[in-house]
Design a protein around this nucleic acid. Structure first.
Lengths: 340, 340
DNA sequence: GGTTGGCACTCACCAACAACGAGTGCCAAG
DNA sequence: CTTGGCACTCGTTGTTGGTGAGTGCCAACC
């Protein structure tokens, strides 16, 4: 019984603290939420919660502030993920429906997420590791220069210019083209690279070096794409609302936002099945960002999770709303990808 | 004679203020720079400079601070653009030489600029308005779906997927392809769109709608590219160094950095011939950014100026160094584009 | 006339100090 | 277990006075 109330107190403290950004005391807490107990009782509960590590005092005789552990408990047990309003849902849908291509979907998602959560939004472009090669095209820019174009099932297009070091007759070019198509199209990017290796072996000896160059470029494009995970960031203007703790929090965050490799580590593994991951403060992989949290989830067409999307904000954030927004955007984006 | 000294005083004040970020008084000024006059004399000069609007006092009995007009004079007349060190030049060159394609060049330039100037760097992707069509390719994804690929002389590649609404035989496709090539290749993007209009008219009547669809997509790609000016931003972490005047300066700047349209207005027209444009404070087009300056210049292969690149920072910045860095990076990037 | 030393004045900044009040912990009674 | 009471803590706010960097002005000097 008391246990229930304690959790209610923790929840109330977190809600108040998120709203006011100030340590919350027993009296104001009782007033604002309709707790049917006296401040003294709440104080006892607070003392217990602090004992267990869910709360902390900035200094003696100040109100309490939730710890990372407190937020953790809140997120795991207490948060009723509040559904978005119908109007919000409609707004999301119409905004995303206006997208014209994959890039645009990602751009719009970032913007949407940052506006909904008033936080910094991060959207990873769909990973290609599970995508397939849809088409390969060779375009002769000059007799000894080729443009290699790679088109993937996600709609992404990669191109490479290859200097052949020799002139390649149209006949050889055509043969190489058809052989590449035969080998690659329909292959997953994981297997396509291996399959490519054999292609150049069947060329005319004279055309051999050129073919090898093309194959190398193509393999490079595939491999490069496999590892280069692109990322879009938006809503950095929301960082200006951090108020206190500026150098300590914003500086490293801005740095992380520019280092996409770091950012990827921060986002973490894509989760599947609509689950939203929450990393609170020091739970994250980056020392400097101990006072920021990450709310993220995987998304992608069908049930698969090709990439991750989420927001980064101060540990003191409105988790229920944020989680709802992240989940909603992920769902709608996934649906768009389904249709595309 | 006194006029010369006054300018020297202005210059000294600006240098000190940029270095210390604090209003500078007559005494410390005389000490730090080897001015062979007494503080009283300097005070007289300061009073005159203030009278003319080059200096301002935050409050009575505080040191002087340069006004926008003061910086303007400094930049126009006094600044000896200090050349970069040989080491710096070498660093720039090797860093940029490592770039593998146009995107990479831009990415590296942004990073380089922000590191050299410790400021927020902005690089506009080369504008296509003066570029020419190098190649057009049609790829049949399905009998009734075409991928249209547009390759431009800058190395940019644009693609569009076209739903034909009918199946198009390979023969028609080949004819359309060769006709497009004939019409467009070598054309500037300005004239290519007009030339396109005639292409579909010569198709077989049955293939007419399909041809029109393709032409429309191509025209769209060209037009879209002509107006969509892409931009890369880097070094936002340097905003954390703003210290004072945070909400007033950083917030609107972060917002501007996300609105690429706004950012383009901020960068302004590309200047030609190696001239570096400096926009100080309220000289810029955006009200909210009255306390930030822009140092920018045009760049591009040959003598032409396809795009703009530069940095955005507080009005209180080291103009000589910044201008030198911007100019140097623009030169090297232009050289790279020449070779590509 | 430009330059300089002297001098009174201004005013942001800092430290010390007191009053205030929100909040706590503890305890005894309900 | 809850509650009212009470003493205590301590950050916040406002006051006050001293300090010093800096100024403007003026008379004297070169």
């Amino acid at each position: 019984m008391q246990e229930d109330r304690r959790l209610a107190v923790l929840r109330a403290i977190i809600e108040d603290y998120v709203a006011t950004e100030e340590p919350v005391g027993s009296k104001t807490l009782v007033e604002r939420h309709g707790l049917n107990v006296s401040p003294a009782t709440v104080r006892n509960d607070m003392a217990a919660l602090e004992e267990e590590g869910y709360l902390a005092q900035p200094h003696t005789s100040a109100g309490r502030v939730p710890t990372d552990k407190g937020y953790r408990l809140f997120v795991d047990q207490l948060a009723t993920v509040k559904p978005l309003s119908a109007a919000e849902k409609r707004a999301i849908q119409t905004f995303l429906d206006g997208a014209i291509d994959l890039d645009d979907v990602v751009q719009r998602s970032v913007r949407l997420l940052s506006q909904l959560t008033r936080q910094v939004a991060v959207v990873q472009y769909p990973t290609l590791s599970r995508s397939t090669v849809r088409h390969v095209e060779l375009v002769a820019l000059a007799p000894n220069r080729l443009l290699v174009v790679l088109i993937l099932s996600t709609g992404r297009v990669e191109q490479r210019v290859v200097e052949l070091g020799q002139d390649l007759p149209e006949s050889d070019l055509a043969e190489l083209r058809s052989r590449l198509l035969l080998t690659c199209v329909g292959q997953g990017v994981g297997t396509a690279v291996d399959a490519l290796a054999a292609v150049s072996e069947f060329s005319r000896p004279e055309a051999r070096p050129a073919a090898e160059g093309v194959v190398a470029a193509l393999a490079d494009a595939i491999l490069d794409e496999r590892s280069t995970e692109r990322i879009a960031v938006g809503g950095t203007a929301n960082l200006a609302r951090y108020g206190d703790s500026f150098d300590s929090a914003v500086r490293p965050l801005l740095e992380a936002l520019e280092e996409h490799v770091v950012l990827l580590r921060l986002l973490g593994e894509a989760t599947t099945g609509g689950a939203v991951t929450v990393r609170i403060g020091a739970e994250g992989p980056i020392q400097e960002l101990a006072s920021t949290s990450v709310v993220a989830t995987g998304y992608g067409p069908g049930a698969q999770s090709l990439a991750t999307l989420g927001v980064v904000g101060p540990t003191r954030m409105d988790y229920p709303s944020t989680m709802a927004a992240v989940r909603a955007v992920a769902r709608y984006v996934s649906r768009i990808l389904d249709e595309g």
